[in-house]
Amino acid sequence: MLRGLTTVCFQTRGVKQLVNVKWVKPEYVPAYKPQKSGDLENLPNISQSSIPEDYALSEHLKDAPETVKQLFSVAHLGKKEYNALVKKELMDRVRKHKYDDDTPETKIAKLTGHIRCLQDTMEQFPRNIKTKVCVQELIDKRKKLLKFLRQYDYKKFEWLLEKLNIEYKAHPEDPHKLTRKESLRKLTEMHCDEIRNNKLADYRNLLESQQGPFLENKLKALKFIRNEQIELKLSITVTEQDISKVEKQLDDWKIRNEQKQELKKKKKKLI
């Protein structure tokens, strides 16, 4: 019925819209953005005066003057050495020992460092098509590794997501294209459901307001029937339990009614 109503409202020409529903086109988010890739953290805080790993092992550099150290620092050597330190910092979070480079978690950490470096580059140069394609390929490769780890070792998968601050977003099993017609149909169904729920709530409130007088009349009728049966010495069909049950229901209704009245008074004061 709702689909037929939607078809009449939005497809037939010359027919006025029966339901006031506004469709808003979803905002486009590029695939390399952290919102799509699932990266909840930016690049780690690495000082520009840091020395790359290959040069840091040199004993001569440790005793060298500050000017020489600045020449071998990340700020002077360039982006490549900085990216290597980013990957190393993320791999150190998950590796088991110094030579742990081929396990799935270290591979994922290395890919994560590479992805975040490329995302930073894309923020500066959003029209770099080559980098855009590269970061998308790396994101897809990381998703495959995460899917493998999730399937065979779920505890380590959850631990890895927490360490690297990643949100796992799997590929949809059945990719579905969002259309305006389908969105309007869903919005119309939501609008109709809201109208129906409001009407049901109003009718429920009406019945609850009539419940008190009904219980009072029922209580009087039960007491009258019981007294008449006792006076005429007939078989008693109305017991004391039936009367006490109705009295309890009436007391509960009075308590609920008082609470509703207090809430209405508070709303009026706020308004």
Rank of each mutant, 00 (worst) to 15 (best):
L71I: 11
S37K: 02
V19S: 04
A84Q: 15
P65R: 00
L40V: 00
V24K: 11
E81P: 08
W23E: 05
P34N: 09
P44M: 13
V74W: 00
A75S: 13
S47K: 08
V86M: 01
Y82M: 14
Q48H: 15
I46N: 00
D54N: 04
K87R: 11
L57P: 05
D39H: 11
S47M: 05
K62T: 05
N20P: 06
N42E: 06
D54H: 05
G38M: 07
Q17P: 03
D39N: 08
K33D: 10
N45P: 13
D39S: 09
M91C: 08
A31Q: 12
L61N: 05
Q17F: 03
E89L: 12
K22R: 09
S49K: 08
L57G: 13
N42M: 06
L85S: 08
V15I: 05
L43R: 03
L18N: 05
P30G: 07
Y82F: 15
E59K: 08
S47T: 07
E89F: 15
S37L: 08
V74P: 00
E53I: 06
K79P: 02
Y28K: 06
Q70Y: 13
S37W: 03
A75K: 14
K22I: 11
V86G: 00
P65C: 05
V24M: 05
V68T: 14
V68G: 08
K25V: 01
V24Q: 12
Q35M: 02
L77K: 12
I46D: 00
N45G: 14
N42V: 01
K69Y: 05
L40N: 03
N42I: 02
E41T: 12
P44F: 15
Q48F: 15
P44K: 10
A56E: 13
L90M: 02
K16R: 10
Q48L: 15
K79H: 07
K25E: 07
K69N: 04
K25I: 04
L90D: 00
T67D: 09
Y32A: 12
K22S: 07
Y55A: 15
V19P: 04
H76R: 15
L85A: 11
E59Y: 10
K88F: 10
P34T: 04
E59C: 11
V24F: 04
L40M: 03
E41D: 14
S49C: 06
G78I: 00
I51S: 01
Q70S: 08
A56Q: 09
K79N: 03
V29E: 12
L77Y: 04
P52A: 02
E41Q: 14
S47G: 09
E41H: 15
K88V: 07
L57N: 11
K36C: 11
K88N: 07
Q17G: 07
R13G: 13
W23Y: 12
L43C: 02
W23N: 10
W23T: 02
G14D: 01
H76C: 15
N83M: 07
P52N: 00
Q48R: 14
K62W: 09
H60W: 15
L61V: 04
G78L: 04
Y55Q: 10
F72G: 00
D63Q: 11
